[in-house]
Design a binder for these strands. Sequence first.
DNA 1: CCGAATCCAAATAGATACTG
DNA 2: CAGTATCTATTTGGATTCGG
Lengths: 137, 137
Amino acid sequence: MLGPDHTGDTAPSLDRADLPAADRASACQAVAPVLARVGDKWSVLIVRALGSGPRRFNDLKRDIGGISQRMLSLTLRGLERDGLVTRTVFPTVPPRVDYALTGLGRSLWEPVEALGAWAQRHHPEIAAAQRRYDAQV
Amino acid sequence: MLGPDHTGDTAPSLDRADLPAADRASACQAVAPVLARVGDKWSVLIVRALGSGPRRFNDLKRDIGGISQRMLSLTLRGLERDGLVTRTVFPTVPPRVDYALTGLGRSLWEPVEALGAWAQRHHPEIAAAQRRYDAQV
DNA sequence: CCGAATCCAAATAGATACTG
DNA sequence: CAGTATCTATTTGGATTCGG
């Protein structure tokens, strides 16, 4: 799969035959950091929580549940650094900080959602496979 | 999160309004482990390498490059456990083991590719955002 | 040739306490 | 309210060695 004889769907392929091997390799390298960001334990949940609009720090913490202040702070900073999330400080007292998705962040939602739909559709199969594997060992 | 007033695009949504909140939450939980699997440093590269057909252990090691035996072995076992990859031992001497994608593994490729396409399209923006962020600090 | 086992270093995550 | 600082526990990854 993913050779020049790929499935032929219209999605832009990472494996474009018009690129030399080195560029295909570097394209592959480009994917890895994004998957690392999206694949970490919290980023997607945050992006998802922000999908319906801006949220404050502690609202996010409550919405997501199970995340420590530290990880929420670190992950938000990473998302901000990558241009996926904006951080807006209102100099009021008590202080208030809103986090919101950027256009880039919103554009990320669609492929993440596609993966989420896959996960949703197939996670019974995965769970079954895991049970089979664990039982046999 | 992701209320009925979502962006309204036509993509199949995780946030189907016909599901009660608890199901949306559990859907969210279902996504995380899959993203963790796909988001680790090597799984996607392995799935990708297997995309064009079965491969032997050391072929994979060479194809991927930079992966240790340990991580290749561990990651393959994880993918096998999740039912994404099959492991076939040929009792020859010297021994030979083929790894191949299952149907489930192949079905995963499409959403991964969508994410990869996003990464490809937007990674200049991400890099720029990172430079901006790093410069301003 | 395939890969398990061991050992070690580094990165990561949680809990807790503290600050503007 | 919105974090930072610190400490520790867990996870992760590489290198090396050994076995089937």
